[in-house]
Design a protein around this nucleic acid. Structure first.
Lengths: 342, 342
DNA sequence: TTTAATATCGGAAACGTTTCCGATATGCTC
DNA sequence: GAGCATATCGGAAACGTTTCCGATATTAAA
């Protein structure tokens, strides 16, 4: 049995010391001589003693855990974030518990209630939407929160550190599409209330939006991209460019167009957002906007952990990253290899 | 403050009952009248009381959490597994804590030690390799363990439920490649000790293995696939088919070949394993073997939870899934659409 | 109405730590 | 060697629950 019920008391007895001394040894606190410490450590080793984390947490009221609340993990964007967070947290000796809101923005708040039960030391949030209830919840929360923000302009009084990817990704895409002379630009995204800034950028860039050129799917999946492609193909007056809400959708679009014999970018240019790895191996390679997710996640994690460790109150940080347009083959015909603007 | 320090005692006082009664109310145990229960619930609501999970776990010694130990999350195969596990666990009211071994098989055991500190109720393991130390660790473990097995034939005395994907994926690939008349078949995979069965299948299918046609990379990434492509391309006598250790590598191969102007499948056929979603959107579409990861993960999770909930001892289950070859365009030139053998 | 059975409740111990505080041992100064 | 500061240690309380067990209230049976 690995974690038999060997307690600090057993160790104390075996080492011939008091339990307080054992505690001092395992937390390498001072007030203990090196000699006895060695003795205790030996006993611990022999007995295979492992401190009961619950008893510890109950006393010191911290868990060395942070929660990471993300939407659907199957979105290729999320693993990159999760990985970066994990790496950063590990560096500080913290573990991350991943909570999936399962892509359901409505349920997001519901799930956050669960977080309280976990008694984590901090929370990293990657919200898809920002209902007022969420902001209220954040402001009432007693644990530090750090937000990985998809670009939404948040009220400045949100009591959390916020690392944003600015809201310029959409503008970059639209400018690019207009620059290359496309006139009938469509939008394909998830429902309007999910990361809505990306859609706003679409509206802002156009004098007049043709409602028939806007497609809102259920989520940010390949599937949605494919369905969008079918929709646009059915139009009597097809678009000559599509701004996709994320790369998953963009790849779905490109793929379906290919199946239908529609040429990308000649017939239709497609540009996505997120710059996920998979966009580089499609044919044609996907033009996209890098929002530097891993970088953003890392900074958000560090901000959170600093706040936790230094018990900082108030003075919430606002960090902004600027996105970069990366032009590949899905928007501009290229002679040979991809020309990256970076 | 959301989780102020409101305890069961505060609730008891507010409701005018004893703490035992409050406990009965929140665990909706019996021995309490509906009337008082309502009274207590009201007090709980008013005070915003949330039971301290540590105190609870300390007493009842269970956490309603299981751990999922997986290699690199960035491998597209893993999120599908993680998602399936999460779904299944949620159904039983369990939370899953994801532990990343970060693709380092050597460190796998090291990380498992960490698991003990988490005091989870059970452990779901997706090991890349099976050193003897791992088996020993499993057999000594006091918590239920369920293994998501990549096909390795495990000693039957491992004290864990095991859901295997059989070890036939490799055979299917090789048979397919031989059937379509390829004669110089290469292998590209991760280091030999990682999921080595896939390589064994390669050896088994050949009378004589040409060592120059075997490439072992560092991991199961696109990167490795690309490097492998460069290696094979440099050979004076290039292979006419490649069996890739997983789809990530296969996609990397196909992509690099395309860049180099080598035709797939005409010049080289490429077949992967795992049947990840991304294989369906590459050009050409990737031939692969479905090992039904999500299905396997779900069953493994259910086995684990059943064992936990029913406190079952001994009688370890062995479940075997059979893989299915899915022929797409990367191994056979097709006139039109993909012909799936399923 | 009395008695027995049962339903409902409260007190207190226990879970395994950390930490305060008092006690003892040790080292130093003179 | 006396006196004092300091280093080292152990006992016990506390963290917030659950649960055993005894006590009381309620109901049914006679």
């Amino acid at each position: 049995m690995v974690n038999k019920k060997v307690t600090i008391e057993d160790v104390a007895e075996k080492a011939g010391v008091g339990i307080a001394t054992v505690s001092r040894a395992i937390n390498n606190a001072d007030g203990i001589s090196p000699k006895t410490k060695a003795k205790v450590m030996e006993a611990i080793e022999e007995l295979g003693f492992i401190p009961n984390a619950f008893a510890q947490s109950l006393k010191v009221r911290q868990t060395k855990q942070i929660a990471l609340a993300v939407p659907d993990i199957r979105n290729a964007f999320v693993p990159e974030i999760a990985y970066a967070v994990e790496q950063a947290a590990k560096h500080y000796g913290y573990r991350v518990v991943q909570i999936n809101t399962l892509g359901n923005a409505r349920a997001e708040l519901e799930i956050l209630k669960e977080v309280k039960k976990l008694h984590v030391d901090g929370l990293l949030l990657l919200p898809l939407a920002y209902p007022k209830t969420l902001k209220d919840w954040i402001n009432k929360s007693s644990i530090p929160i750090s937000i990985i923000n998809y670009g939404k302009k948040l009220d400045s009084d949100v009591k959390a550190d916020i690392v944003s990817m600015s809201a310029q990704e959409g503008r970059l895409v639209m400018e690019h599409l207009l620059n290359i002379g496309r006139t009938r630009i469509a939008y394909a995204g998830a429902p309007k209330d999910i990361i809505e800034e990306r859609f706003f950028a679409y509206e802002d860039a156009l004098h007049h939006v043709d409602i028939s050129l806007v497609y809102f799917g259920d989520d940010f999946s390949l599937q949605t991209g494919m369905k969008a492609a079918d929709y646009f193909t059915g139009l009597t007056n097809m678009p000559d460019a599509i701004y996709a809400g994320n790369d998953m959708i963009a790849i779905g679009l490109v793929n379906r167009f290919k199946e239908l014999g529609i040429r990308v970018p000649e017939d239709i240019a497609v540009v996505g957002i997120d710059n996920i790895l998979w966009g580089t191996i499609t044919t044609p390679k996907l033009s996209s906007v890098s929002i530097m997710g891993a970088e953003v996640a890392r900074v958000a994690t560090e901000l959170l952990l600093n706040r936790i460790i230094e018990q900082k109150k108030g003075v919430y940080e606002r960090v902004q990253f600027e996105p970069r347009l990366i032009v590949r083959e899905s928007s501009v015909s290229m002679t040979r290899t991809s020309q990256q603007l970076d």
